[in-house]
Amino acid sequence: MLKVNGNWIRLIGIVGCTMWMTSCKQTPDVQVKPSYSVMKVALADKELSTSYSATIRGRQDIDIYPQVSGTIEKLCVSEGEKVRRGQVLFIIDQVPYKAALQTAIANMEAAKAGLGTAELTYDSSKELYAQKVVSEFSLKTAENTFLTAKAQLVQAEAQVVNARNNLSYTEVKSPTDGVVGALPYRAGALVGPTLQQPLTTVSDNSDMYVYFSMTENQLLALTRQHGTMDDALANMPEVDLQLNDNSLYGKKGKIESISGVIDRQTGTVVARAVFPNESRLLHSGASGSVIMPSTYKDCIVIPQGATVQMQDKTLVYKVVDGKATSTLITVAGINDGREYVVLTGLKAGDEIVSEGAGLVREGTQVK
């Protein structure tokens, strides 16, 4: 009995366990529906900042080359010195040019004397011809001699002007107010107009030009925002300059011009901003970044995570009757990497999926 009863006891345990497993298999799985973050869009003001790599140049960076050949007798300035327009920078050996000027002046005086003699001869020949003392041939010869002497005087006078100019070129002067750059040539160096490297560079850095490039899309966005390029330039806000050490320059600048031609290789246009430089903190040849703010009034701003990019289109999912409905939108070409300014496709009060839009499908129930 105990043995039999023991067998029955084991049988009942096995059957009970089998029934429990069967009931577990028949119980339906409970699926948890995903939930999505949603938001109601509203009108607000938004200021976006865009950074552009930039190169700093002086208002004028003028390379100074000698106009005559010779050895440098004297350096009249030092590197980094402020100079005024017309100030002497270098003096080139003047001896041969002074001699050339004296020779030209002597030739001019000789030409004047020759012209006087030819004029007297011509006048005399005219009187003698009138009295039929000399032939017409003699008269014409005297006239031609007179005209030749006149031309020789003009030529001699031109040589004097040229010699005087060459002498003046031995004093190399600054063509503008500015700051002297490097001085690669010293006293005694032989220089001339064919130098590969300039004597120096004078940079007018009272105001500095800062050049940067904008993409075609950014240019289109600016134009659409303001209506025309002229209006965009007139209404553009002041810009900041971030220097190479990541510090902000203390003065704000103004964008003065944007190139009207798009570079075919880079697809960009060159813009120029001007910054005051009374402190001479900015130097020609330096680099930095132009930070341009863009202000949008009463606009709709949404997180970028609420959008889905499909080729060249941008869409969001509006929540309509608890379901996700895809909606095409257009956004401003300028953004801060976190949010978009919506230009069309949404209105205040619309409810959209604000996060994980890429996981949503058309008609998804949004909890």
Rank of each mutant, 00 (worst) to 15 (best):
K3C: 01
L11M: 11
I14M: 13
I14E: 04
V15H: 01
C17P: 00
T18N: 05
T22V: 15
P28E: 10
Q31I: 15
D45M: 01
K46R: 14
K46C: 04
R57P: 00
Y65D: 03
P66W: 10
V68M: 08
G70V: 02
V77C: 08
V83A: 06
R84D: 10
G86P: 07
D93Q: 10
L101K: 15
A110C: 07
K112N: 09
E119V: 07
L120C: 05
Y129P: 00
A130K: 15
S135F: 13
F137R: 03
T141W: 00
L147F: 14
T148D: 09
A151Q: 07
Q155W: 01
Q155C: 04
Q159C: 10
L167T: 10
P175Y: 05
P175W: 06
A187V: 11
L190F: 14
L190K: 15
G192K: 04
L195P: 03
Q197P: 00
D207K: 10
Y209K: 09
F212R: 02
S213E: 14
L222V: 01
R224W: 13
Q225C: 04
A232F: 06
L233T: 08
M236Y: 01
V239W: 02
L241C: 08
Q242I: 11
L248Q: 12
I262D: 06
D263S: 12
D263A: 12
T266E: 09
G267P: 10
A286R: 05
S287H: 13
S289L: 04
K297L: 06
T314F: 07
V319N: 11
G322Q: 01
A332S: 15
V353S: 03
L359I: 09
